[in-house]
Write a protein that binds this DNA or RNA. Structure first.
Length: 478
RNA sequence: GUCCCCAUCGUCUAGCCAGGUCCAGGACACAGGCCUUUCACGCCUGCGACAGGGGUUCAAAUCCCCUUGGGGACGCCA
């Protein structure tokens, strides 16, 4: 169901979006999708995209995670215009804002113990209610003490509404909200608070984030109001689910963005897939990066959660491999070749190889594996294949072919075809009877690109050598 | 439990806001076929959905209500 959607940001105002990952692990596909939506929207509107690292939880934040996130964003080609900001560098700003709230009576100190709070929550749940802070310290006018936290004084009545770009209006009863903590006992600020302060001070006017944040938004709206700041436009995108329709997690398989890189996916394909999951542009399935920037708008984001489908991503990857010019694929293929022990190859040779493999590879890894026969000095014949095709009977056509190719003036597909035709005529054999043995001779196996393509890419010298050793192989067996 | 959100083929989705052109279109997957020097690619065909029930209307996938189902959130995590 689609409802009237509108962008709250004034038309003249430059769109400023942000992506705020918390460095407590790698960048997963769900996070990447949110980053993508923000980045794409900023690019589409010629606005600005800000990167902010949310590391107020010093315990769980790690340098490794920060690096992993940068690495993943870089691979995806998501570049930011501002930042990265680190919240851990901004504690003095937060302190200042907390003081403002304290001074204006929008916040107060609370000395309730975590243990008591926990007990209260349990009881509330058991009694069938929503666990909330009971307001014990709300009017106590406590001053700062050892282990006192700072709570936001939320309104007791009325409603707070999110005018969501994607979901429409979402209304919350303020009585559902409670006096949430904005500064911990040790003085460090908490999530809902720092997000608001950051978004205000960084000029963020468009907040696109996961559905799971909907419940945080009324709290944040209240904070904006208490701070006297204008609200940004909010857009909550539905989540990505696993095949069992629950929140995507490790048990659903690969989640890390870079894992897809390592499996041989093109970032363009991952991007295409991730954006298309939950967003649509008519019937179009395939998008290049530039097309995405050109066509992406918030209006076409759907409201329901989507299931992550590896199969479809794989198919899309195959499409991107197919349509990317072979020359451009070279640098992407190199790491996989290297893994297979192949290095320092000529670019023209690689381009030719890719040209024969791109329509039959679903991943770069697959392509690198399928390309191996091109690099071997001596061909190792697959036992079954050799037995079936490298028989004495093929010695004659094989030698004829060798002669034909040797005397070829112009070494191209046309000349090769003529050479084969000549052999067919002289031996009375069908192409199939000749091609399979030749394929085994050239590649070692029975599955490969077209026979003419292979010979052309391998070149005269290499092809001849392989053909000759196959002939020798047959003779030796006799 | 409470609050919030969502609901079209197995999956991603078009159509829904501005009801008729929809016995619902595309894609992935699957099945069959064609092409063919193998494998692919490509092409063709098939399979397969408006969650259920009430309204409103001449007419509902589209608007309203209820039910059911699913998801998310309820931290001194973000």
């Amino acid at each position: 169901m689609k409802s009237k959607k509108y962008i709250k940001v004034k038309l003249m105002e430059k769109i400023i979006t942000r992506f705020p990952p918390s460095p407590t692990g790698y960048l997963h596909v769900g996070g990447a999708r949110t980053a993508l939506f923000n980045w794409l929207y900023a690019r589409h509107t010629k606005g600005k995209f800000v990167l902010r690292i949310e590391d107020t939880d010093v315990q769980r934040s790690t340098k490794e995670s920060v690096d992993a996130i940068f690495e993943a964003l870089e691979w995806l080609g998501i570049e930011w215009d501002d930042g990265p900001y680190f919240q851990s560098d901004r504690f003095s700003i937060y302190e200042e804002y907390i003081q403002k709230l304290l001074d204006s009576g929008h916040a107060y100190y609370c000395s309730c113990s975590p243990e008591r709070l926990e007990e209260m929550r349990k009881q509330a749940m058991a009694a069938g209610g929503k666990p909330k802070y009971d307001g014990t310290c709300r009017e106590k006018k406590l001053s700062k003490g050892e282990n006192t936290v700072v709570r936001f004084k939320a309104p007791l009545a009325g409603t707070t509404v999110i005018e969501d770009i994607i979901k429409g209006n979402i209304v919350f009863q303020n009585s559902e909200l409670d006096d949430f903590i904005i500064a911990r006992g040790d003085g460090t600020p908490t999530y809902n608070f720092v997000v608001v302060v950051d978004d205000i001070t960084m000029g963020i006017n468009t907040v696109i984030r996961g559905d799971d944040h909907v419940n945080n938004t009324p709290k944040q709206i209240l904070l904006y109001k208490a701070l006297g700041s204008a609200l940004p436009a909010f857009g909550h995108v539905p989540m990505v689910l696993g095949s069992d329709r629950t929140r995507l997690s490790k048990r659903h398989g690969a989640m890390s963005v870079t894992a897809y890189r390592d499996m041989g996916y093109l970032s363009d394909a991952l991007i295409n897939y991730l954006v298309r999951l939950g967003w649509s542009y008519g019937d179009q399935e395939f998008f290049t990066r530039d097309e995405l920037i050109e066509k992406f708008t918030l209006e076409n984001i759907g409201k329901s959660a989507g299931v992550f489908d590896q199969e479809k991503l794989l198919a899309l990857n195959a499409d991107h491999i197919k349509t990317t010019p072979p020359k451009k694929l070279i640098p992407h293929l190199l790491p996989f070749l290297k893994e297979n022990g192949i290095e320092n190859q000529d670019d023209d040779y690689l381009e030719g190889i890719i040209n024969t493999l791109n329509i039959r590879s679903k991943t770069l890894k697959e392509m690198a594996d399928a390309a191996m026969f091109y690099f071997r000095d001596t061909i190792l014949y697959d036992e079954k294949a050799a037995k079936k095709f490298l028989k004495p009977a093929v010695l004659e056509p094989l030698e004829l072919l060798i002669g034909q190719i040797e005397s070829l003036d112009v070494f191209d597909e046309k000349g090769l075809e003529d050479a084969f035709k000549e052999v067919m005529e002289r031996t009375g054999l069908k192409l199939g009877k000749i091609a399979q043995p030749v394929r085994v001779a050239l590649t070692g196996g029975t599955v490969s690109p077209g026979i003419f393509e292979i010979i052309e890419v391998l070149g005269k010298e290499r092809s001849l050598a392989r053909l000759k050793s196959a002939a020798q192989f047959i003779r030796d067996k006799k």
